[in-house]
């Protein structure tokens, strides 16, 4: 291969990618008129670029999986919790001696994993402008059918208009007890709450309302039937309790 054809090959590629200045572009075009086999290569390569864009550009608009958000980094998110647990453990063992240490460990709140996942899903998805939900409320029937099928039990979003919140829609999420669901609500001011549902752990029975704080997020959680529920919001405890009560009543109507 002599120097001239080698040059032409790099220029041909750069021509495909639109990276030549006007003068060299004209040279390449003149060459292509004389060399139909190179012209058909150029056409094929351009088609490759176009096809790649057409095939893979939709990935750009897919909602990100939960674990790809920086908030999901274990270290970041769990830190306050872990410190609190450590501090609690230290105070206890200081007062009562090391004898209680093991007992304290096994008495970890049973629903902690579910609560954390719910709060995490809340902080990740509520700020979304474009994709706050996967399926919007205009397709509520479909949403109910889909999520019920994936969770393996009847899942439906409670209507909370009386409490001042409108359903926006919902999404499917990974959870420690298999697939989980999140419904999102918004009030007139644009404040968002999320209701997270997952299958209850096998060893747990029904449970009354409990309250937890995860960072800035307040969570009320309970078990009803086969499902555990967590209502999350960045609101006052009393306000959240009012809505949690409405959720419970609405689901048991």
């Amino acid at each position: 291969m002599n120097r001239k054809t080698q040059l032409a090959e790099d220029d041909l590629q750069a021509y495909v990618d639109g990276r030549l200045d006007a003068a060299r572009r004209a040279e390449v075009e003149a060459w292509l008129l004389q060399h139909p086999s190179d012209a058909s290569r150029v056409a094929a390569y351009r088609q490759q670029n176009d096809a790649l864009q057409a095939l893979f550009n939709p990935v750009l608009n897919e909602p990100l999986p939960l674990q790809m958000y920086p908030q999901a980094r274990h270290r970041n998110f769990a830190q306050p919790l872990r410190y609190a647990a450590m501090l609690g453990g230290m105070v206890l063992s200081g007062l009562l001696g090391w004898g209680l240490h093991g007992a304290e460990k096994s008495r970890q709140p049973p629903m902690a994993a579910m609560v954390r996942q719910a709060a995490l899903a809340h902080v990740v998805y509520t700020p979304e402008m474009l994709h706050p939900v996967e399926v919007g409320r205009e397709q509520e029937q479909h949403l109910v059918k889909w999520l019920s099928k994936r969770l393996g039990s009847d899942v439906k979003p409670p209507h909370l208009a009386e409490a001042g919140y409108e359903l926006m829609g919902g999404r499917l999420l990974p959870g420690s007890q298999g697939p989980a669901a999140q419904f999102m609500y918004q009030d007139a001011r644009g404040l968002r709450l999320t209701l997270y549902l997952s299958n209850k752990p096998a060893d747990k029975g029904e449970a009354a309302f409990r309250y937890a704080q995860e960072g800035k997020v307040s969570v009320f959680y309970w078990i009803d039937g086969d499902l555990s529920y967590a209502l999350s919001g960045e609101v006052e405890k009393a306000d959240l309790l009012r809505v949690a009560t409405a959720v419970y009543q609405e689901l048991n109507r």
Binding site: L52, L55, F56, N57, V59, L60, N61, E62, L64, M68
Partner: peptide, 10 residues
């Protein structure tokens, strides 16, 4: 991330 995902998918 969206760009990384697009590239990784391909």
């Amino acid at each position: 991330i969206p760009r990384l995902r697009r590239y990784a998918r391909a």
